[in-house]
C-alpha cells in the first residue's frame, strides 16, 4: 500500500497511560485528519521543541481515527523517555503513514513478540487470522491481555508468569509440527525472534513468513539511507522498501 496520501502536521500529545512495565499508550491530537493507512504502516514523530532529541522517531500505528492518532511504545532511549515522562500537553510533529504493510489473506497465522504486537493488534481484533500467537517476556511486560484472551489468542511468556511458558517462536513451531499448516505467516518482534522464525520456515517448508523490521531512521521515507539493512542481495531500506519483508528476502536461502 504505497501511494496513499501522507500528512505532515503538528500535533499535541494529550493523554498518556502506562499499560505495562515501560510501555505507554498515547493519544496525539493532530491538526489534520489522519489518512487511510494499512496495517504495518508507521509514522515519524518529531519532538519539535527539544533540540537534544534532534531526529524524529519511527512508531508503528496502533490506531487512528479522524484527528486522533494512537501509539503504543516502549521506553528504550532518550526520545521515548522524553515522551514517557514529559508534562502534557506535549508538542510534536507527525508525518505518515509511511512504509509498506502486511500481506492480506484468509487463514493466515500471526506471531507477535513483545511490542511487535502493536502493528498487528487491530487485525487480530478483527479476527483476520486462523491462529494468533503472542509472547511476552513476563507478566509485567504484558498488555492488552484480557482483550487477547477474549479472542482466543495463544498467549505465552518466556518465564511462564503468564500463559504458556516458553518463547512464542517455539510454541508456534510446535503448532506447525502438529498441524502441518501451509500458508502465510505475518510477524513482528525483535531481530532474534525474526531470525528464529526464518529458521523455522526453512525447516518446515510450506510457509511464507513476513516480518516487520526496525532500525534507527532519520527521515522515514527513503531519503537519508540511514536505515540500510544488509541482506545477501545487498542493502534494503527498512523505511521505504519495508518495514515488512518476506523473511527469506532478508535472511537468505
Amino acid at each position: 500500500m504505497k501511494d496513499v496520501r501522507k500528512i505532515n502536521c503538528d500535533g499535541v500529545i494529550t493523554s498518556r497511560r502506562k499499560i505495562a512495565n515501560n510501555i505507554y499508550h498515547i493519544k496525539i491530537e493532530l491538526e489534520e485528519r489522519f489518512p487511510i493507512f494499512a496495517y504495518g504502516n508507521f509514522v515519524m514523530v518529531h519532538l519539535k521543541d527539544y533540540m537534544n532529541v534532534l531526529l524524529p522517531r519511527p512508531f508503528s500505528i496502533f490506531r487512528a481515527k479522524n484527528k486522533i492518532l494512537e501509539l503504543v511504545f516502549k521506553e528504550v532511549g532518550t526520545g521515548t523517555k522524553m515522551i514517557a515522562t514529559s508534562i502534557l500537553p506535549f508538542n510534536v510533529r507527525v508525518w505518515g503513514p509511511l512504509g509498506n504493510s502486511f500481506p492480506f489473506g484468509k487463514d493466515m497465522l500471526c506471531v507477535a513478540g513483545g511490542l511487535g504486537l502493536i502493528p498487528l493488534y487491530q487485525s487480530i481484533i478483527k479476527r483476520n487470522f486462523k491462529e494468533v500467537f503472542v509472547g511476552f517476556k513476563n507478566i509485567y511486560e504484558a498488555y492488552f491481555v484480557k482483550s487477547l484472551q477474549k479472542r482466543g489468542v495463544i498467549i505465552s511468556s518466556d518465564d511462564g508468569s503468564l500463559g504458556e511458558r516458553g518463547f512464542v517462536t517455539e510454541i508456534f513451531y510446535q503448532y506447525l509440527k502438529r498441524t502441518n499448516f501451509k500458508g502465510k505467516v505475518v510477524s513482528c518482534g525483535p531481530i532474534g525472534f525474526l531470525k528464529r522464525l526464518w529458521e523455522i520456515e526453512r525447516e518446515v517448508g510450506n510457509i511464507e513468513t513476513y516480518g516487520s523490521f526496525e532500525k534507527h531512521m532519520a527521515c522515514g521515507f527513503g531519503v537519508c539511507l540511514g536505515c540500510a539493512m544488509e541482506t545477501p542481495w545487498g542493502f534494503v531500506k527498512v523505511c521505504s522498501d519495508g518495514p515488512v519483508f518476506r523473511l527469506k528476502d532478508v535472511f537468505g536461502e
Binding site: L55, G226, G234, F235
Partner: peptide, 20 residues
C-alpha cells in the same frame, strides 16, 4: 555505489553523524 556498512546514522545532542 552500495554505500557503507550499517549502522549509518547516530544522533548526538544538536546534530547527527552519518556514514552513508
Amino acid at each position: 555505489k552500495i554505500g557503507n556498512k550499517p549502522p549509518r546514522i547516530c544522533e548526538l545532542p544538536g546534530g547527527m553523524l552519518n556514514s552513508i
